[in-house]
Amino acid sequence: MWATLVSAIAFGVVLASIIAIAAMGFTIQFGLTNVLNLSFGSIMTVGAFAAYLGLEQGINAWYGLVVGGLTGAVVTLVLGRGVFRLYARRGAKLFEMMMVTLGLGLVIDYTVQAISRNNVYQFTVLQAAPLRFGPIIVTPTQLIVIALGAAIFLALEGLLRFSRIGKALRAMAAEPSLARSCGIRTGQVVIVTWLLSGFLCGLAGVVYIINSQSVGYTTGQDFLPLVVAAAILGGVGSPGGAAAAALLMGVVTQVVAAFGSAEYSTVAGFGILVVVLLTRPSSVLSRGSAETRLTI
């Protein structure tokens, strides 16, 4: 009983680390640009496939993480400056922009499907004997995933709190026009946001397939519900909140899978979001006519 619970929690932390990396990227992007980017999962898939192709070429798995992250960053920047800005200039509002991102996700997903011939590919790296800590059995890979999640969380918090660009980023997320009149180069901050969130997105895609050991065109889209739910649950624009929400959802998902039914574990994770929507709706309240504007 206790052993099952403890090991379920350990698995939950592993899952949470992956959700957290993606959700932190998502929440930074959403908090600053106000684009609810539903093609985020598709870009995760692209990053994951880039790492897969890299490994096929014989590069080291660690570089695979970098390749996935950079691919995500570049793709996100190109889409942000190229596609999203085009629509914003034509007067697209928040939910129109969200629809654009959905159509874009569809295009990316099925392009990947066409190129990957609708196959699921094995992605096996970092194979090593599992380690045993009391009742918990983890593979070194899972430990690395947890360490990576924690390291990225700390690095991101440090960046946002102490660096100049991080402060500019937070100022702009709070009030873009005020930030601009204080002399912050808002255009540059937006570019940094696309790059940073895209990097986290691609990285999360690679970490996800390192853990699941396979990659297919639905990889990112299957994972998207947990990411968006964690970002909304944690309060948009707050990486700390996203990480905490990811931890909660990861642990609940795995505990339900261990004790209840595996089929409903994702539903349980989503159930937390529903409970929050019902009990604390102030976090997602509409602001009526004074709607938030896109800053891209």
Binding site: L38, F95, M98, D222, P225, A229, L277, P281, V284, S286
Partner: peptide, 30 residues
């Protein structure tokens, strides 16, 4: 009951999309 309450429209749409994605996982698994 939980998605039609007063909330930002983009959140609402995202929640409904999540419901759709999860529903299919449940029906496939159960």
């Amino acid at each position: 009951a939980f998605s039609m309450r007063r909330m930002r429209r983009d959140y609402q749409a995202a929640v409904l999309l999540i419901v759709s994605l999860i529903a299919i996982q449940v029906v496939e698994a159960d």
